[in-house]
Design a protein around this nucleic acid. Structure first.
Length: 277
DNA sequence: CAACCGCCCTGGGAGC
DNA sequence: TGCTCCCAGGGCGGTT
């Protein structure tokens, strides 16, 4: 489920419930996620106070602090199928509810992840963002660092496709398959074009559309926020206005040409053969 | 270095 | 109903 807007929606949903709470316990039922959940986390974190939840790309960082002013940070990635919910401690765990962080108000944060591509890790104490998984990430898509000029410069001499290029988190974070597909559709760019051959002008369009789409999706994520955190645990992709993603053989909303699908690096791309070239 | 490909998993849906 | 196959929101790590 989670692309960047869903992760940001999750962050906004859980932070008010977590901030200033003391962690009572961490219960790990299934440590085999993308990487093994470190054993020491269950002993390190109880007693720590949560001071904030920040996001970097699709990673969430739960920052804590103890009486001795020792800071620590839990690093969470939701992978393909992960979700986080605030529940009561009396709510029994179900299938795929792998980790609970127990809070000091009879609530808990529950990590659910059927496919187990997610991650639950510990950051280096001194500088959490120096974690190996975070250190080389590209700029945030909504930041000023993500500009047409930046993409243009980074892409010179690159032969891979524009689709693969903008989905590379070391280039820019947060453009997953859905939003990369939608971005190229709105920018009118065929997904197989070589990244290194695309003009400044077209990259300016890519950036403009990506920002628009992600910003809009975050706004919409807000509408499903309550459900996401408290009840169903299902973010509403159905509520999103997807213009090309998943629409194979349906008419393009601009020109009525039938949308086509192709495979790039084992991921589907949908595109309009008329509008995107 | 850059590019590509396999793979970590479970579950849902289509087709037979 | 049940089997098999394909597909899915990610992205690391090994190989060429």
């Amino acid at each position: 489920m989670p692309e960047l807007p869903e992760v940001e929606t999750t962050r906004r949903g859980i932070e008010p419930h977590l901030k200033n709470r003391i962690i009572q316990d961490i219960i790990v039922r299934q440590p085999s996620l993308r990487w093994l959940v470190p054993e020491h986390m269950a002993s390190k974190y109880p007693g720590q106070k949560i001071i904030g939840v920040i996001r970097r790309g699709k990673y969430l960082l739960i920052q804590t602090s103890s009486k001795d002013h020792i800071n620590a940070t839990i690093l969470i990635h939701l992978g393909m199928s992960g979700s986080l919910r605030i529940l009561e401690q009396r709510d029994l765990p179900g299938k795929h509810d792998h980790i609970d962080i127990l809070l000091d108000n009879n609530k808990l944060l529950r990590f659910h992840d059927p496919r187990r591509f997610g991650a639950f890790l510990d950051c280096p104490a001194d500088e959490p963002l120096s974690h190996k998984l975070l250190a080389k990430l590209g700029p945030e898509p909504l930041s000023d660092d993500f500009s047409g000029e930046y993409l243009y410069q980074r892409s010179r001499n690159r032969t891979l496709s524009i689709k693969s290029f903008i989905m590379d988190s070391h280039v820019v974070v947060g453009l997953g398959n859905i939003y990369a597909t939608e971005t190229l559709f709105e920018a009118g760019i065929h997904p197989t074009l070589a990244a290194g051959k695309i003009s400044r002008k077209r990259y300016a369009s890519v950036v403009l559309q990506a920002k628009k789409i992600i910003d809009n999706a975050i706004q919409q994520g807000g509408t499903t926020l309550r459900d996401f955190v408290n009840v169903s645990g299902k973010p509403g992709y159905f509520k999103q206005q997807l213009k090309v993603y998943g629409r194979e053989n349906q008419p393009c909303i601009y020109c009525q040409t039938l949308i086509r699908r192709l495979k790039q690096n084992q991921r589907s791309s949908w595109y309009c053969p008329q509008c995107q070239h």
